[in-house]
Design a protein around this nucleic acid. Structure first.
Lengths: 226, 226
DNA sequence: AGCTCACTATTTGTCATACCAGTTTGCCGT
DNA sequence: ACGGCAAACTGGTATGACAAATAGTGAGCT
């Protein structure tokens, strides 16, 4: 996939296979930097740059004298990614994320219809109420996210939940933009309410139409902004 | 946030504020490594390690012999995190992966119906033919994967494709087991053919039913194998 | 014996330097 | 004004050196 054959990136792959082959897990140590350089015929500079990548990914922790041990703080790494608040979301990031959500949340109608309970409906409405009364842009965006997260959680797929957890920071930013620049909080509240109604009544057409509209609004704005 | 005293991580923060202060956005160039070292009284080694972090975060792109420019591929970076520990992940989430596929591929019927062209249909059938004639378990599983990947690619969501790319090893394993222990290659071929027929005829009920059946088989195996 | 503490050896962190292989820039001659 | 060519610049890697940190060792004391 990677066209660039930078020695560092090659080394990262080699380290990956090393971890794989030796069946190393969390807590297991890696060889020292000089040793790795010896193993893969690279300078320590190259090894260190590769280790920086692994550290940035949150898969190794390095301490002087003790060396590198395998960890799994990838979630923290994701959080770090979005410490770059200064950067505007790129158009591509926005479109992809929103498109993905649309695919999931519109497409999950069938699963939702068979799985949603009365309690789920109540909870969705409660979250929506909370959102309307939430203070500040960030607070409303957070509740907006919680609403959609609850929807996805009803589907009951752990991996999907994990993906949403990862994408949470991006989604929050999108929602802040959406609530801020496109719709007032009340419009958002009404749209959510309509979605819940359609879900409760198992109205497939209405659900998918309203969900599409709900997600499309932000998408359209961004498309024309290009 | 981080209490880190490491010079590299300090430098990362400094670069972040530099980007902020100069109001740099996507496409803007950064000073050269030597220049940055001069600015922040650091060696080029330190600068390079900091740049590695930014690269891993997907916020800068470095073109050799030219320089670094700001980008925003943080989404890609997020999914790079999951290029690690595929084996371990797979054990935990065989069921979830299959459930996820079901969610996507059954749920994407609407998108598929509006987007699928004649050429897509032909290609799907060609892949299916290739699968029937493929040699060996692994070869058939690979073509099986290609069939489903093609389906997903029709949906046209880049992020979803990326997820499939990441899950590929897990899916291949599932498929090898499926083809090996449950169905003969011919059964698999027939199921695919039925799915393509339903897709071509825009028969929603048939498509979703057949796809569910097709994916459910592998799921059942792992349920009982557990 | 058991505990304390200083020391040693090893490892990471950072730096300075050098060289390579391309890219950009700008000057020079026409 | 323009084309071509060389110098300056840039990232990629290697090497060697030293500082800082710390796990492990072992001497010395109680």
């Amino acid at each position: 996939m990677h066209l660039s054959d930078s020695a560092v990136e090659v080394l990262v792959e080699q380290l990956k296979t090393l971890i794989d082959q030796r069946n190393l897990g969390v807590g297991d140590p890696l060889p020292s930097e000089r040793e790795l350089g010896e193993m893969f015929s690279s300078s320590r500079t190259t090894v260190r740059e590769a280790m920086r990548i692994l550290k940035a990914y949150g898969v190794v922790e390095v301490r002087p004298k003790v060396g590198a041990v395998i960890i799994d703080r990838r979630m923290d790494a994701v959080f770090d990614l979005y410490s770059f608040n200064t950067l505007e979301l790129s158009r591509q990031t926005f479109l992809e994320t929103q498109g993905f959500r649309q695919l999931i949340e519109v497409g999950a109608a069938d699963q939702l219809f068979t799985r949603t309970s009365e309690d789920d409906i109540s909870e969705l409405r409660a979250i929506n109420d909370t959102m309307r009364e939430a203070e500040g842009l960030h607070g409303r965006a957070l509740q907006d996210f919680n609403f959609h997260l609850k929807l996805v959680s009803i589907v009951g797929n752990q991996q999907l939940l994990e993906i949403y957890r990862i994408m949470k920071p991006v989604m929050l930013k999108i929602m802040e933009n959406g609530v801020n620049r496109i719709k007032s909080g009340d419009v958002n509240f009404d749209e959510h309410a309509g979605i819940v109604d359609a879900l409760e009544g198992r109205n497939r057409i209405a659900f998918q139409y309203r969900m599409s509209q709900h997600l499309e609004a932000g998408l359209a704005l961004f498309k024309e902004a290009d």
